[in-house]
Structure formats: structure tokens, C-alpha cells
Amino acid sequence: MKTATATPVRLGDVVITVLLLAVFVGAYLLAQDWPFRTKLFPGLLATAGIGIAVLKLGGHGVQAYRHRTRHSATRQEDAGSEQGDDHSIEYVFGTAGARAWLAALGWAAAFFVALCVLGVFITVPLFTLAYLKISGSAGWLGATIYAVVAGGVLWFVFGELLAVPMPAGIF
């Protein structure tokens, strides 16, 4: 367990709380145009959400005030004290560099854009080959076999055998 220390307010927490507050206010305002039975539950819910968000922001204010007035030699606690398990998702997200994030998000974006544009049967082998070769540093043979098998199995099982509708692309 962490020792007693004033933790600084994290900007991300404040931003998320403000965004949620905006969502609840918007939800409340939109609900005002609806009939009573339609707006009752959303209205109650949005009101509760606004109340909790305001309470949370107040908590951030109190936290920031306490941190500013009391903190001294314990600042390093926030980042350094929680040594995570290097397999945990929190640890990986917290320690990955900007380059790794850009690469991962870029690959994910490329996959889903290709899925929408080219369809699944073209995207899967192409993406698999490119990803394994470039990001996975795999050999040509292994990557090609994986790509062909992945595309082939997907086409045969989902397209032919089960006839499940799949993303077909825009062409």
C-alpha cells in the first residue's frame, strides 16, 4: 500500500471529468424537448451525472489545494513509487514511448481504414504480411505463409462455408 502522501491532481482526470460534465449537461438539455415519460429516466440520470461530476471537480480542487500547500520532498512519489508488473496493461500503457504509441496506432488505423476501403479478404493478407515483415521483423517465408493461410481460412470459413456477411469495402 502507498504511504500517506498528497498526490498531485492529474490533468487527464480533470479533462475527463470536464468532458463528462459537458456530456451530462448536453444530455439533460436535449432531454428537455421530449415528453415526460421519455425524458424522466435520462433527466434523472443526467442530473445525477452532473452532480457527481461537479463533486469530482470539487474534489480535484481540494486535492490541488492540499498538494500545493503541503507538498515538499515527496513529489517523486507519483511517478516512481508504483512499480508495475511489466506484463500489466497499465504498465505498458504508462511506459510506452511516443514512437511506440504512434506506430501501434498507425498500424491499427491502417488496418481499419483498409478494412473499410478494401474489404476484409484483401486487407487481412496484405496487412498480415506488412505487419509481420515490418513490425514483427519476420522472415518473408513465415510472413507469407501466415498471410496466405489467414486470408485463405477467413475466406473459406466465413465467406464460403458459413456465408457470414463480412466487410466488403467500397469497391
Binding site: K2, T3, A4, T5, A6, T7, V9, L55, K56, G58, G59, H60, V62, Q63, R66, R70, S72, A73, T74
Partner: peptide, 15 residues
């Protein structure tokens, strides 16, 4: 919890 000098209790905000 005993509170050491110059070290505050954990106040992970109101929550």
C-alpha cells in the same frame, strides 16, 4: 495511521 512530520495522509481527493 501515524502521520509522519511533513508527510500528509493519503488524500486521493474526495473519492
Amino acid at each position: 495511521e501515524p502521520v509522519p512530520a511533513r508527510v500528509e495522509t493519503k488524500d486521493n481527493d474526495l473519492t
